[in-house]
């Protein structure tokens, strides 16, 4: 699937071919400017002020940033965010690729099972978190019944490893269906002719999966991973409800720390600085991912077919 630009007419689906003009993007751009760019500028300004929500913000130069740079909880929160995001990607990606390609088959039982499997995605994160919190109560929930499986005393949310495992699990439980759906759609659009050719060549199921399905899913993998990374970095509700950033500050990820600074400690200046850090990190990671994977070049995986 290499591309050569010489001696060949532009592919009909290539760049600039019949693309709508900027006017089409105007409503979205306006909306985006009003509800994202504008607040973002406000946050950037506020990160140089000191404000408790009472009276007017007062400029305090780089104070917030200096404070943040020396803040142990902040540094720890960045590592925790990275860890939770990586765990999310590492667990959800293989699961959803396998489930997605499996669900792409047209058999009736697969349709029913994928519908059931889709249910967690329909629930709100808050409801999901409350549900799991109740299920994980050490005395009256699952750990009370199956104590040996949960490490004796069922102190699942009371240890750092346990709390991170729960957050990862609940995240995967809720969001794997979304990514499964992406992969299901993508796997269905793989031209059957590829599999037919492979059959003639005598390729087995495993070989077909690795040599046809997976390469064909490349763009979907990039999409899904970017969604997971940005989603992982901005995870908030599950942490708020399931662990409240605890035990101690052991699961205080950056987004939650921002909330804590803003709405519990009323230090909106520092909270704005944290928000800005998050914006910068998430943007950088997305850009790097897009670049590294060559996604921005928009090469079709079906070129040459």
């Amino acid at each position: 699937m290499t591309r050569s630009d010489t001696g060949r007419p532009r592919h009909p689906g290539g760049p600039n071919a019949g693309r709508p003009g900027f006017a089409w993007a105007l409503p979205a751009t306006l909306f985006f400017a009003l509800f994202a760019i504008l607040p973002l500028i406000g946050v950037a300004v506020m990160s140089f002020t000191s404000w408790s929500g009472l009276g007017n913000p007062a400029f305090n130069g780089l104070d917030n940033w200096v404070k943040l740079a020396g803040d142990k909880v902040m540094m720890q929160s960045l590592w925790l965010s990275a860890l939770l995001t990586l765990l999310g990607v590492a667990i959800q990606t293989p699961l959803s690729i396998l489930l997605g390609t499996w669900a792409a088959g047209h058999q009736k039982n697969r349709a029913i099972l994928s519908a059931i499997y889709f249910v967690p995605l329909l629930l709100s994160s808050a409801a999901v978190s409350v549900l799991w919190r109740a299920l994980l109560d050490p005395n009256f929930g699952l750990p009370g019944q199956f104590s040996s499986f949960f490490g004796g005393d069922g102190n699942v949310l009371g240890t750092q490893a346990g709390a991170i495992a729960v957050l990862t699990f609940v995240g995967a439980w809720q969001f794997t269906p979304l990514h499964t759906l992406l992969y299901q759609g993508a796997a269905r659009s793989v031209p059957p002719v590829l599999y037919q050719a492979a059959d003639i060549d005598g390729a087995g199921t495993v070989r077909k999966f690795f040599s046809i399905t997976l390469p064909q899913l490349r763009n979907t993998i990039v999409t899904s991973v970017i969604l997971m990374v940005v989603g992982g970095l901005t995870t908030f509700d599950t942490v708020l409800i399931l662990t409240k950033g605890g035990p101690g500050t052991d699961t205080t990820i950056t987004a939650f720390y921002m909330y804590r600074k803003a709405f519990q400690s009323f230090d909106f200046g520092v909270a704005s600085a944290i928000a800005l850090v998050l914006v910068i990190i998430a943007t950088t990671i997305s850009l790097v991912l897009v670049r590294v994977t060559g996604y921005d070049k928009m090469h079709s995986v079906q070129e040459g077919i």
């Binding site: 509800f35 607040p39 940005v230 800005l276 914006v279």
Partner: peptide, 12 residues
């Protein structure tokens, strides 16, 4: 990508 994170900032 920015939009995803800016939503957070909005709350503040």
């Amino acid at each position: 990508a920015i939009a995803g994170t800016a939503v957070l900032a909005l709350g503040v």
